[in-house]
Design a protein around this nucleic acid. Structure first.
Length: 695
DNA sequence: TTTAGGG
DNA sequence: CCCTAAA
C-alpha cells in the first residue's frame, strides 16, 4: 500500500556570526521547512536539505590566538605524551602515529541509537527550554529570521549549523501531542545533520569545546529513549592520537588533516577495533539527547580550563560510548579504516529544486513559535508540525511515513596545511574556507541504507525499504563533493560496502592544486640575495616574503598564505545545488575581503624604487616590475599603498601607525610624488597646448 | 583591464 | 582593502 504521506524535514536555525559589514546585526538564523511527498525519492529530499547547507558560507571563524599555544590547545608536540597517557587509560588500542593527526581537524560522526519510547511532549519541550531557550522562535523564514532576537541567546560565540530532516507522522499515537498545526509526530527514526563550527574570538574555548561535543552525553536513564539515531558531525581540532583513541570518533569520520597517510589512518583504527568500549550500552534517553542537540551543549564544559581539554575528553569518551549504545557498536565495527576516503559518487537529484517553493517558514513567532521552534531544532520537526513522541520505531514501519533525523553528515575529507606559527584565527579561516568551499561548491548528499549506498535517486523510500526499516542505523547520510567534481570512474559502488560509513574513495580529486601552491613553493626556493633584489624587485619581494624575520604580523601573513595554498576550493557547481536558489546571493554575501597584508619595509622600498622610475600613473608596470612575483599584490594594492605612503609621509611621525617606515623612504616618496605630479602636470599642460594648437 | 579616487 | 566610474 502506498499512501501519499508527507514528509517534513527542515533546516533548523543555524546561526551565523555578524559579518564585517553588518557587525551590529548580531547573528542571523535561517531555517527552512519543507514538505515533500513520501514518494519523493530519498535523494530528492536530501538534495534539498543539503542545499541549505550552502547558506553556511557566511560563517567565518576569526581569532588571533596562536595555534602553538600548547597550554590552550595542546597542539604542540610536547603535549602529546601527556595526552597519550590520559587517553591510553580508557583505550587499550595502540596509539596511532602522533604525527599523522597532528594539527588535524576531524569531522566525526557518532551514531547512537535507541528505540523511541513514549515520551511526553511537554516534558520534551520543557527540557528543551532549559537547554536552549534561545532556539525558540527560530522557525521563521530566512529573511525574517535575520532579525530574530532569539539569535542572541544562541550559543554565545559559536556559530552553529543545524540541519535536521525528518518526516512527520500523520497517525498520532495516543501519546502523541498536538502542538501547533495539529500535525503529530510519532517517534521514529530520525536523522539530523549538525555541523558545528566554532566561531568567534573565543578560539580556545570553542575549539576545545568541540572536542567534547559528543562526549558529554550523560544519560540520565530516566527519560524514555526517543532518539533513535544520532550522528554528530564534529570538527575537532585535536592531537593526532586523540582521534585514534576515541575510536568512535575516528571511525567513519572524516579527517581534515595536513598529513594523509593511509597507513596512519589504519593504524589509528586498529586499536579501536578491539576497544573494549564497544559494549552494549543503555538506551539513550531522549531528554539527554535533546540537550545534546541543543545549542547549549557547546557549553557543556564551560568550566574546563586550559589543559583540561584532553583529559576531560578522555574521561568523557567512556561516557560517550555508553551513550552511543549498542547500535553504535555495530556501526563502529563496520567502520573501515580509510577515513580519508569518502564517497562522492552519489548524485543528487535536481528535482528537489522544484520543491524549494514549498519551503516555508512558520510565521508564528510569539508563544507558539517558541515551542515549535525548539522542537524543530531539536528534532528537526517542521515548524508547523506538532510533536508527538512516544511511538516506537517499529511503529513507523506500519505507516508510510518516514521520519528521519539527520544529526550529522559525513563531511568530505579536507586537507589543510598550516604552519605552526599561524594563528588560530587563520586556522579557523582556513578550515572555514575549505568547508565553505565544499558546502558551497559541489555538494551533494549520499544515502546509505544498510551499508549500501543508494544510488538510484528515483527509488522511493518505500522501495528502498528506508521507510520501514526499524534499524535506524541502517540509514546514513553523507555529504559528498559534487559528482561533477569527481570523475564518476572513481566511484566504486560495484562492491558495496557492508558498512554504511565506509566507502573509501580517494579524495585527491577534490584537492585542486591552486596556483598559490606553486607560488608558495616558488617563494620557498627563491631566496635571493640582497644584492639581487636591487635589480629584481620581484624576487626580492618574494624572498622577503619567505625569509623575512617574520614579525608577528608577518607570521600571520605567511600562515594565511600557506594555508590558502592548500585549501581545496572546488569550483562551485550551481547545478547540483539548484535546490537552493538563494545560494548565489548568500554566497556573494559571504565573500570575505582579502586578508590584510601590511606592506613590509622591503616591499615599500621596492615600491618606492619602482615608482621613482616609472611614475605614479603606471601601476601595472610597477606591479610587473617590482611585484610580479607577489601574487597577492595587485596594481590597485600598489596604487593604494602609494597613496597611503604619501599620506604617511605628510603626517607627523606620531600619527603614523603600523610598522614604521624609514623616514628616508618617506622622503623619497614625497620627492617622487612631487616629481611625478609635476611631470603629470606638465604632460597635461602639454596636451592642452597641443590641443589648443590643433584648434 | 587599467586608472584614478572615493569609501 | 573595497568598489567603481572612466578610460
Amino acid at each position: 500500500m502506498v499512501l501519499q504521506k508527507r514528509l517534513h524535514y527542515g533546516f533548523d536555525g543555524y546561526q551565523v556570526p555578524p559579518t564585517p559589514r553588518a557587525t551590529r546585526s548580531a547573528r542571523r538564523r535561517r531555517s527552512f521547512r519543507k514538505t515533500v511527498d513520501n514518494q519523493m525519492c530519498a535523494f530528492d529530499l536530501l538534495a534539498t536539505v543539503a542545499g541549505k547547507l550552502l547558506l553556511e558560507g557566511e560563517i567565518s571563524p576569526s581569532s588571533t590566538d596562536t595555534l602553538i599555544n600548547k597550554d590552550q590547545y595542546a597542539v604542540a608536540n610536547d603535549s602529546v605524551k601527556k595526552e597519550q597517557q590520559d587517553e591510553d587509560k580508557p583505550f587499550k588500542g595502540k596509539p596511532c602515529d602522533p604525527g599523522t593527526w597532528d594539527r588535524s581537524f576531524f569531522v566525526s560522526d557518532i551514531v547512537s541509537q535507541a528505540p523511541v519510547v513514549n515520551h511526553s511532549l511537554k516534558e520534551f519541550l520543557h527540557t528543551q527550554n532549559d537547554t536552549c531557550s534561545g532556539l525558540a522562535s527560530v522557525i521563521t523564514t530566512s529573511d525574517s529570521s535575520e532579525k530574530a532576537g532569539s539569535a542572541e541567546k544562541f550559543v554565545n560565540g559559536e556559530s552553529k549549523i543545524e540541519l535536521g530532516s525528518f518526516a512527520s507522522k500523520v497517525d498520532v499515537d495516543s501519546s502523541g501531542y498536538r502542538v501547533s498545526s495539529g500535525c503529530i509526530l510519532g517517534n521514529e527514526s530520525r536523522k539530523q545533520v549538525k555541523i558545528d563550527l566554532p566561531n568567534n574570538g573565543k578560539a580556545s574555548v570553542s575549539t576545545r569545546t568541540m572536542c567534547y561535543l559528543e562526549d558529554p552525553v550523560v544519560w540520565d536513564g530516566k527519560s524514555p529513549a526517543l532518539v533513535s539515531s544520532d550522528n554528530i558531525v564534529k570538527l575537532l581540532s585535536c592531537r593526532d592520537h586523540i582521534p585514534c583513541r576515541s575510536l568512535p570518533i575516528c571511525r567513519g569520520d572524516v579527517k581534515l588533516g595536513i598529513k594523509d597517510d593511509d597507513e596512519n589512518s589504519s593504524g589509528c583504527t586498529q586499536p579501536s577495533t578491539t576497544n573494549k568500549a564497544f559494549r552494549p550500552l543503555p538506551r539513550i534517553g531522549d531528554r539527554r539527547i535533546r540537550k545534546l542537540l541543543a545549542s547549549k551543549y557547546w557549553k557543556v564544559n564551560p568550566k574546563l580550563k586550559n589543559g583540561e581539554c584532553f583529559n576531560a575528553g578522555a574521561a568523557m569518551r567512556p561516557v560517550y560510548r555508553s551513550k552511543v549504545g549498542y547500535k553504535r557498536q555495530r556501526s563502529q565495527r563496520d567502520y573501515p579504516f580509510k577515513k580519508r576516503k569518502f564517497y562522492y559518487c552519489s548524485s543528487v537529484s535536481n528535482d528537489g529544486g522544484s520543491n524549494n517553493d514549498s519551503i516555508s517558514s512558520s510565521p508564528g513567532k510569539g508563544s507558539n513559535g517558541d515551542a515549535s521552534g525548539l522542537g524543530a531544532i531539536l528534532h528537526g520537526a517542521t515548524g508547523t508540525s506538532a510533536y508527538a513522541a512516544g511511538q516506537h520505531v517499529s511503529f513507523q514501519s506500519r505507516d508510510s511515513h518516514v521520519k528521519l533525523k539527520i544529526k550529522s553528515f559525513r563531511v568530505p575529507e579536507l586537507f589543510v596545511e598550516i604552519p605552526e606559527t599561524a594563528t588560530v584565527g587563520s586556522l579557523k579561516r582556513t578550515v572555514m574556507e575549505a568547508v565553505t568551499a565544499i558546502l558551497g561548491g559541489g555538494l551533494c548528499v549520499g544515502v546509505l541504507h544498510q551499508g549500501k549506498k543508494i544510488r538510484d535517486d528515483n527509488k522511493t523510500l518505500l522501495q528502498t525499504g528506508i521507510s520501514h526499516d526499524n534499524n535506524l542505523d541502517a540509514l546514513g547520510f553523507t555529504l559528498e563533493p559534487n559528482p561533477s567534481h569527481a570523475p564518476q570512474s572513481l566511484c566504486q559502488e560495484d562492491r558495496p560496502s557492508l558498512f554504511p560509513w565506509d566507502t573509501p574513495q580517494p579524495i585527491k580529486s577534490y584537492l585542486p592544486v591552486p596556483n598559490e601552491v606553486h607560488d608558495a613553493v616558488q617563494l620557498g626556493t627563491s631566496d635571493t640575495s640582497p644584492d639581487y633584489r636591487i635589480t629584481n624587485f620581484g624576487n626580492f619581494i618574494d624572498s622577503d616574503h619567505d625569509s623575512a624575520p617574520s614579525p608577528p604580523d608577518m607570521s600571520i601573513d605567511k600562515g594565511t598564505t600557506d594555508s590558502r595554498a592548500l585549501v581545496a576550493i572546488p569550483a562551485m557547481n550551481v547545478d547540483a545545488l539548484a535546490v537552493v536558489p538563494m545560494r548565489k546571493s548568500k554566497r556573494s554575501e559571504a565573500v570575505q575581503r582579502r586578508i590584510r597584508r601590511p606592506f613590509s619595509v622591503s616591499e615599500v622600498e621596492a615600491l618606492v624604487h619602482a615608482v621613482e622610475k616609472l611614475g605614479t600613473g603606471r601601476w601595472r608596470d610597477v606591479k610587473i616590475r617590482a611585484f610580479d612575483n607577489a601574487k597577492h599584490r595587485t596594481y590597485v594594492d600598489l596604487k593604494d599603498k602609494w597613496k597611503t605612503l604619501v599620506h604617511t609621509a605628510r603626517i607627523s611621525p606620531q600619527q603614523r601607525r603600523g610598522e614604521p617606515v624609514p623616514q628616508e623612504l618617506l622622503d623619497r616618496v614625497l620627492t617622487a610624488h612631487a616629481y611625478w605630479s609635476q611631470q603629470q602636470a606638465k604632460q597635461h599642460l602639454k596636451q592642452q597646448s597641443e590641443t589648443y594648437l590643433l584648434l
